[in-house]
């Protein structure tokens, strides 16, 4: 489904991704793990189309070239990114935001627009999924949300958008154990044969709840090791030292911007 070949990303003279290869099949969950500054968030932004990087290589989704597309077109093509730091948009209520997003994507795909009441019904189901109080729909997007609320809001949006490919960037960061459980349950319920996911995380903890089909270790802009979920357990015990040491001199001092 997703095919990434020799992907490079840099900002100015700083090279962050240095030829990354990845294939994600339909229905699969891939975990990307790696130390700080290894390029994990840059990978997510390269897939979602953030401005500011010089990108090289190939990325296709179901054979369609993603790299040429602006972010909204990638969203329409089915890419959803769960942000590590969800952005606050004061004065715009969550429901209006989400409905506009959904209808934008539907319009791009040539689908019919969804009316307010139908949308509300779907959104409420999604809210129950992430155990979110229905008031949240009427609050400004992420404004004044706690860290956990923001992350649940990301999953809520994913449930509404029903993407083909979800890229979840450090969805576990800043969550207590209860919130982590809720978020993971939400993600698991959205698993399906037609939906692929890339779960980016620093810690193995999240993978106790969301069991990946594959685990990749990203170090210094490249995938240095791939395996099944037992690889994550190995990292839990041994850290990234095994993968980092031999390459220490080349490690970038600063990571990608969040």
């Amino acid at each position: 489904m997703l095919h990434v070949e020799n992907l490079t990303a840099s900002i100015g003279d700083t090279s962050i991704l240095k030829g990354l290869n990845l294939d994600v099949g339909a229905g699969e969950i891939h975990a990307i793990m790696g130390p700080n500054g290894s390029g994990k968030s840059t990978l997510a932004h390269a897939l979602a189309g953030r401005d500011g990087y010089e990108i090289g290589g190939t990325v296709t989704l179901d054979g369609v070239d993603l790299l040429e597309m602006v972010p909204e077109d990638r969203a329409a093509a089915g890419v959803f990114m769960g942000f590590q730091y969800p952005v606050e948009i004061p004065g715009v209520n969550n429901m209006y935001f989400l409905r506009t997003a959904l209808n934008s994507v539907r319009r791009a795909r040539g689908d019919e627009q969804i009316g307010a009441s139908d949308f509300l019904k779907g959104a409420q189901d999604a809210m129950d999924l992430v155990e979110m109080n229905h008031d949240f729909l009427y609050r400004s997007v992420n404004a004044g949300f706690s860290g956990g609320e923001k992350k649940r809001n990301e999953i809520l949006q994913m449930a509404v958008m029903q993407p083909k490919l979800a890229v979840l960037d450090e969805t576990d960061s800043g969550l207590d154990i209860d919130a982590l459980r809720v978020v993971a349950a939400g993600v698991n319920s959205l698993r399906g044969p037609d939906r692929s996911m890339i779960v980016i995380t620093h810690y193995q903890r999240l993978l106790d709840y969301i069991k990946p089909d594959f685990v990749h270790v990203l170090v210094d802009g490249k995938i240095v090791k791939s395996g099944d979920h037992t690889l994550a357990l190995h990292l839990e015990d041994h850290g990234y030292a095994d993968f980092v040491n031999h390459d220490l001199d080349d490690a970038p001092l600063t990571g990608a911007p969040a």
Partner: peptide, 16 residues
């Protein structure tokens, strides 16, 4: 920029 990017990632065009 991050607000615009966030909205665009959710499928809205820049004007919207």
């Amino acid at each position: 920029e991050d607000q615009l990017y966030y909205c665009r990632q959710r499928g809205m065009n820049e004007e919207d």
